[in-house]
């Protein structure tokens, strides 16, 4: 009988597992991970470059709600995360760096309407 497999079993008994206990522990997310978008609306110049380069046409230039119309008169990118393929071309093309991708990726949802990310949220 070969001793190799037995040795391997004992080694694995005391080894740290490859997986982690998820809700308590999370693996480290790299800085470049492409997650949910973040729009800095004050930086945005409404050029529409992000909407034009989006391969899935997930970005639409929309107006903000009427109560904020005075402060933000132009159109701003609204991202439909349901269509987005997280390629980060919008981030690369933005001349002002207004739209960026964060590392946040917990985006699963039960309702389809919640996938749309408005340029500004009124609280």
């Amino acid at each position: 009988m070969k001793i190799g497999p037995v040795k391997e079993v004992f080694k694995n008994l005391f080894k740290k597992p490859m997986t982690v206990m998820f809700p308590q522990e999370v693996v480290e997310i790299p800085e470049r991970n492409r997650g949910e978008h973040h729009l800095d609306i004050d930086e945005c110049i409404s050029c529409g470059a992000c909407a034009r380069i989006c391969p899935n046409r997930a970005i639409m230039m929309v107006e903000v709600p009427p109560e904020l119309k005075e402060k933000y008169p132009k159109t701003y990118p609204q991202v439909d995360l349901g269509k987005c393929c997280f390629c980060a071309l919008c981030e690369d093309v933005c001349p002002k760096g207004a739209i960026t991708l964060t590392t946040y990726f917990f985006l699963a949802t039960f309702e389809k309407d919640t996938t749309i990310k408005e340029p500004i949220i009124i609280e």
Binding site: P30, E31, R32, N33, R34, C85, F86, C87, A88, L89, D92, L101
Partner: peptide
């Protein structure tokens, strides 16, 4: 994990190797 660190996606690099070179330098 290395792909995630370099390209930003674990499986899909989203065009990391693009026309004219690569999209970002190595971290």
């Amino acid at each position: 994990d290395v792909f995630n660190m370099i390209t930003g996606g674990r499986v899909y690099p989203a065009g990391y190797i693009c026309p004219g070179g690569v999209r970002k330098d190595l971290p």
